[in-house]
Amino acid sequence: MSPRLRIVAGLCGIFGAIALVSSFIMNPAPPAEFTVSQLRDFAVQHHNGIVFGAWLQGMGSQLLALFAIALVHLAGATHQFAGWVTLLAGATILMVSLVEITFYLGAVQAAEAGDLTNGTVSNALIKAVQHVFLIAPALLLPVGAVLLGAQILPRVFAYLALAIGATLQIFGLVGLFGVLQPVIDDVLIVQAIWFVAAGVAVLW
């Protein structure tokens, strides 16, 4: 097992989670009751935070997908079904993240140009795409399955990954019919902690 790969994988897990959480903190959503005019002012005022937060989100998603792929490789599961599902989930989540980022950038550019129509549409699509994250395969579900059959991390990481992944998958369905975002945000923070802890464990 290559020590260099372990180092790269561990750092991807740690910094990917940090980047993703930082993007959420740096790029807060505008209040729901804002008018179109207020949304434009919000986008102009928070331009730098939105743009840099979008970059952090994309990089964080990519690093976490790489970390998951590295775990599959380290576990020797590249030809197992769980390994293939991990690759699918990582690629899907990264794609959805990049789509959301596209609408963030589109909203900012439209606001700066005074194009209220496209700005409003982009803002609405951002909220729609956020639901897709929890409809897409939860990354920790197949990762947990991979870890159950490997010795690269303590077994508790596999059980926690399955529990967190299953919770997010269930909330992805229930959240379509109600307001669960505060609860989902808490679970996403727990997921980020899992990635950091797993990254540190891989390094050791």
Rank of each mutant, 00 (worst) to 15 (best):
M1G: 14
R6Q: 07
R6C: 06
A9D: 07
G10F: 01
A17L: 11
F24Y: 15
F24A: 12
F24C: 13
N27F: 01
P31W: 06
A32T: 13
V36D: 13
L39K: 10
A43L: 11
Q45S: 11
N48S: 14
V51K: 02
A54W: 01
W55E: 10
L56H: 01
M59P: 08
S61A: 14
Q62T: 15
L64G: 01
L66A: 05
F67P: 03
F67I: 06
F67E: 05
A68D: 01
I69T: 10
L71V: 03
V72W: 02
H73A: 13
L74T: 00
T78W: 07
F81L: 14
W84D: 10
T86M: 11
L88I: 15
T92A: 11
I93D: 14
V96M: 00
V99G: 06
V99F: 13
I101N: 05
T102C: 12
Y104C: 10
A107G: 03
A107D: 03
A110Y: 04
A111Q: 04
E112P: 09
L116T: 12
N123S: 15
N123H: 15
I126K: 14
K127A: 10
A128L: 15
H131K: 12
H131V: 13
V132H: 01
V132Q: 00
V132R: 02
I135M: 14
A138H: 01
L140M: 04
L141D: 04
G144N: 03
V146F: 12
L147N: 10
L147K: 08
G149M: 10
A150S: 15
L153F: 07
V156R: 14
V156T: 13
A161E: 09
L162N: 12
A163V: 13
A166R: 02
T167G: 00
T167D: 00
F171D: 09
F171C: 07
G172Q: 00
V174C: 02
L176D: 09
L180E: 09
L180H: 11
P182Y: 04
P182S: 09
D186C: 08
I189S: 07
A192Q: 03
I193T: 07
W194M: 01
F195P: 00
V196T: 10
A197F: 09
L203E: 06
W204F: 10
W204Y: 11
